[in-house]
């Protein structure tokens, strides 16, 4: 059914564009390599595991005040549901949107 190993049938009439031409593939790979190189520069600034700069982080406030202000011994839980509960509310809104989208997709015409 046609010559699939050769050049791409780019503008043939009646046939959808199925193959990416060779030039666009090379440009895509180059752009990805540049992006990966720029992102990899940030690997040198990550501190070691367990390093803490107490005077600059907000985490010491969370650790000191979690039990008496929230009443829960699990600091992760108190951060997620109490100190930063607006973000959790936004996450639940995203869950709602996902459910509405999926229910719309599988709805039949006659219930």
């Amino acid at each position: 059914m046609g010559n699939r190993a050769g050049k791409a049938p780019y503008k043939e009439r009646g046939m959808m564009k199925k193959y990416i031409p060779e030039k666009k593939k090379i440009v895509g790979v180059l752009v990805l390599a540049l992006f990966a190189f720029v992102l990899a520069q940030s690997l040198f600034f990550i501190p070691q595991f367990g390093d803490l700069d107490v005077g600059r982080d907000v985490s010491s406030y969370y650790i000191d005040n979690s039990l008496e202000k929230t009443g829960s011994a699990n600091i992760v839980n108190s951060i997620v549901w109490d100190f930063r509960s607006y973000d959790t509310l936004g996450e639940e809104t995203v869950l709602f949107a996902a459910t509405i989208g999926i229910v719309l997709l599988v709805r039949r015409r006659k219930i």
């Binding site: 929230t70 009443g71 829960s72 839980n77 108190s78 549901w81 109490d82 509960s85 959790t88």
Partner: peptide
Amino acid sequence: ILGGLTLPSN
């Protein structure tokens, strides 16, 4: 021992 407002949120 109840968790304040964290328990209903969970």
